[in-house]
Every structure is written in C-alpha cells, then in structure tokens.
C-alpha cells in the first residue's frame, strides 16, 4: 500500500489505501493543510493543486494514480508566482479565504499556460472555483494585474 509521490519537489512515501484521494493525503498525512476540502465531488475547486503543471481537483485523484507525477500545492506557490501572491494580498482579494488556495492554484496554472489572459480566458480558467464570499471581481483584477507584472518584471 506504499505510494511514492513527488510533492512540492520532495519524494514522499505514503502508506494508505490506493483509493485515498490526494486531498486527504496532503491534509491528513503530509500536514499540507493549505489545500482545502469544499465538496469532495469535483464541483468547487477548493482542493485545486497542480499535477504535472495542470490545475487539478485533488479530491478526485486516487493516490494510486499519482506515482511519477509532480504535485505542487499552495504552500510552494509563492516560489514560482511571487507576483500573483503579492497582487492577491495587495488587492485584499480574500474574504473568508477558504477558497483562495484553490483560486490561486487555478490562476497560476492559467498564467503558466497563458501569460496574457483576456477576461474571457480568466472566466474560463477559473470557472471551476466557487467563491461563496463572492470575490470574483477582485480575482479577475488580481490576475490581470499579475499578468501585467509577469510581462514587465519576469516574475512568476
């Protein structure tokens, strides 16, 4: 039942049943609680992480499918996307904050693949992430702003 994973660049060996979703491996077994549980059904995006660079719902990923893949979580996002994290803070995007790890992981995956997204690109990439507090207008603004900084300063 051992599963060898690569999480945030670290090799880890996890002894759980193979159907355990990555979400609970991160939270319960690795202490990486930045990734949140919101629905367990793939509807809300609170659990979004990067798997080989793609924004992915960790509540839907059995751990047995993950060996050989590079998993990244919110805890190391700032290393690669300092501008994005900064604009999130500067714009006071978060209200309760519970959805924001997932929002940031989706936003960063968007910028990785599309450094100059239009509003339509943003809406399409972020549509899987619910924010019950309704911070959507600030999410759009922060992504646009971070995209500007990406072009100017090369950060991210």
């Amino acid at each position: 039942m051992g599963h060898k994973l690569n999480v945030n660049g670290d090799a880890v060996d996890i002894d759980v049943s193979g159907d355990t979703p990555l979400l609970w491996v991160l939270r319960d077994h690795l202490g990486l609680t930045g990734t949140k549980y919101g629905c367990g059904g793939g509807y809300c995006g609170a659990c979004t992480v990067h798997v080989d660079g793609a924004a992915t719902r960790s509540c839907q990923l059995p751990v047995s499918t993950l060996p050989g893949k590079a998993i990244r979580t919110i805890e190391t996002l700032e290393d690669r996307h300092p501008a994005l994290v900064k604009t999130w803070i500067d714009n006071n995007v978060a209200q309760c904050g519970y959805c924001q790890s997932g929002q940031l992981m989706s936003a960063s995956a968007l910028l990785d693949g599309n450094p100059k997204p239009t509003d339509a690109d943003i809406d399409a990439a972020m549509t899987g992430n619910i924010c019950r507090c309704g911070t959507y207008v600030r999410i759009r603004a922060a992504i646009r702003q971070a995209a500007g900084q990406t072009a100017a300063g090369g950060a991210g």
Binding site: R27, T33, K36, I74, E75, I89, A94, S101
Partner: peptide, 28 residues
C-alpha cells in the same frame, strides 16, 4: 483601506481554519 491582517497567510495557504487545527493523537 488597510490590508487585512490575514491576507498574507491566506494567500500562502497558511491561514488556520477549523479543519486545519490539529492536536497530537487526534482522530477524525
């Protein structure tokens, strides 16, 4: 317009919500 005191923690995944708090030997 002061930036929220928790904004940095939240944007780094470090905010402690209810499910993020834990104690030694805790069960779920």
């Amino acid at each position: 317009p002061v930036t929220h005191v928790d904004a940095g923690d939240i944007a780094r995944g470090k905010g402690t919500f209810g499910a993020d708090f834990s104690l030694p030997n805790m069960a779920t």
